[in-house]
Design a binder for these strands. Structure first.
Length: 459
RNA sequence: GGCGCGGUGGCAGAGUGGUUAUGCAGCGGACUGCAACUCCGUAUACGCCGGUUCGAUUCCGACCCGCGCCUCCA
């Protein structure tokens, strides 16, 4: 059984797919007007694990993650640099794909772009207007929140509550202050598309609803994203999807917690963000991924160098288990994680990645202690468990020897010193041997004498 | 003001009505020429106050503290 926390019910519910032969998963992707920060990466990594898990449990998973390539923030970014919109969005889409690949996130099955679906959005808006859930006013088309009795059910608020806390001036063409934009007019120098309401561009929420409808269906199994999307984005998606197609839209809503810096939410508006791109110059992508998975996806994660260093060391201990004590162990082939395996059980419990990692350490401990005959099977088990989390995909020797900084010694030079030290050891010149080891240690290279010879790792 | 989340050992972080994860760091030991890796052992914990209970970190209530959403944001 797979249990998932559903924002709609507020509880951990058993996952019952609409069609067990075709699971549908949609995750909100980035607005491509700059590089993404580590907070943007959290849902990508979290739902990548969900995608891997679902793929293990069901024969087919249709996973879509959109690219928002029309938005006022993009228009503003272009206005500042003079770069054409298509060039800018293409550039940052590619950068996003690169960054996420560095975090070992599998590409989704479908990566729909908003600008490829303007016609679908217009059609959906027309449906909403025809059903009296939307109205045109002053060049805009607005969704009428009062036309939907249970509007607010996802975020747990009602229209009166929202009015009480309103901090924004209400445009006078709105019938109700909570009405939101489906379509808005573009000036001559703004990008726009022809529509029944004149030349304009879509509002933020409609693209996801339209693309879900086109690629995945009227009702999908799971929709994910960051907690800050619950309101208004996902609330409004529900309104659009349910009202346009007369169905329930999404069965399970999943939202990940924030990444914090010094206890405060990391966000573009606060300016306290860390770009994935910059972090990757200091840490392997797998360390970032491990850090993101080291706590539960719904909990806040306080991001710091300390967290990354601990992730690195924890990962090292797992790779050490794969590396062994110098013996050459080949993982058994054809291993498949059993249904009741602890790693699988942990992930099935609302994606408890922290517990899954702990289960990985338990396998590593058994692998370290095992006799030669048992090692291949345990190594295969460790690799299979880790793969569900998208971890331990590197060659262990490569993991430890990969150059990370500008001042790293090159491998040939290190090998030469190691050879010299071996000679010194053979002639029992331990003073010289230790001198070489200390010299390398100062340069960040750790030597280890194993039965099969000396090996080295970068600290 | 409305709605919601969280406070676990030095740090990170799971979990549970009683046997008290896991990783890193610490301490003692084994291994080693000495180390490193690994192994064995070990200390330190559940914000505060009440209640329920044979027994609560885990359930209930109040309180304190921190955070988030209500506006673009993963």
């Amino acid at each position: 059984m797979l249990k998932l926390h559903n924002t709609l019910t507020g509880t951990k519910d058993e996952f019952v797919p609409l069609d067990p032969n075709r699971i549908t998963l949609y995750v909100c992707g980035p607005t491509v007007y700059n590089y993404v920060h580590i907070g943007n990466a959290r849902p990508v990594v979290v739902f990548d694990v969900l995608y891997r898990l679902l793929s293990r449990l069901y024969p087919q998973v249709v996973y879509a993650r959109n690219i928002t390539d029309i938005d006022d923030k993009i228009i503003n970014a272009c206005a500042q640099t003079g770069e054409p919109m298509a060039a800018l969005t293409e550039r940052f889409s590619a950068a996003f794909a690169e960054d996420m690949a560095a975090l070992n996130a599998l590409p989704p099955v479908i990566v729909p772009k908003a600008t490829d679906h303007i016609g679908d959005m217009i059609a959906m808006i027309e449906t909403l207007v025809a059903k009296d859930h939307a109205y045109a006013a002053d060049g805009h088309v607005l969704f009428a929140v009062e036309s939907m009795p249970d509007y607010g059910k996802l975020s747990g608020r009602n229209l009166e509550d929202m009015l009480a806390g309103a901090r924004v001036e209400v445009a006078d063409y709105k019938r109700h202050p909570g009405d939101f934009v489906l379509w808005k007019p573009s000036s001559d120098h703004q990008p726009g598309w022809d529509s029944p309401w004149g030349r304009g561009r879509p509002g933020w929420h409609i693209e996801c609803s339209a693309m879900i409808h086109k690629h995945l269906g009227d009702v999908i199994d799971i929709h994910g994203g960051g907690q800050d999307l619950i309101f208004p984005h996902h609330e409004n998606e529900i309104a659009q999807g349910c009202c346009a197609h007369g169905t329930e839209y999404v069965r399970y809503w999943m939202h990940n917690g924030y990444i914090n810096i010094d206890g405060e939410k990391m966000s573009k508006s606060l300016g306290n963000f860390r770009l994935v791109r910059d972090l990757l110059t200091h840490y392997p992508g797998e360390v970032l991924r491990f850090a993101l998975l080291s706590s539960h996806y719904r909990s806040p994660l306080n991001f710091s160098a300390d967290v990354l260093d601990q992730a690195r060391k924890s990962l090292d201990s797992l790779y050490y288990a794969l590396l062994g004590r110098g013996e050459n162990v080949v993982a058994a082939s054809g291993y498949r994680l059993p249904e009741d395996h602890p790693v699988l059980a942990a992930l099935r419990d609302d994606l408890n990645s922290a517990e899954a990692i702990s289960a990985l350490h338990a396998i590593a401990a058994r692998l370290n202690k095992a006799g030669p005959g048992d090692k291949p099977a345990l190594k295969a088990e460790l690799l299979a468990g880790a793969e569900l989390l998208g971890l331990l995909g590197e060659d262990p020797t490569g993991w430890f020897q990969a150059a990370g900084g500008d001042h790293d010694l090159d491998a040939a030079y290190i090998d030469a010193l190691v050879a010299e030290r071996d000679q010194a050891k053979k002639s029992r010149d331990f003073a010289r041997a230790d001198q070489i080891r200390d010299q390398l240690k100062d340069a960040g290279v750790q030597l280890e004498d194993t039965r099969e010879g000396t090996r080295w790792t970068r600290a």
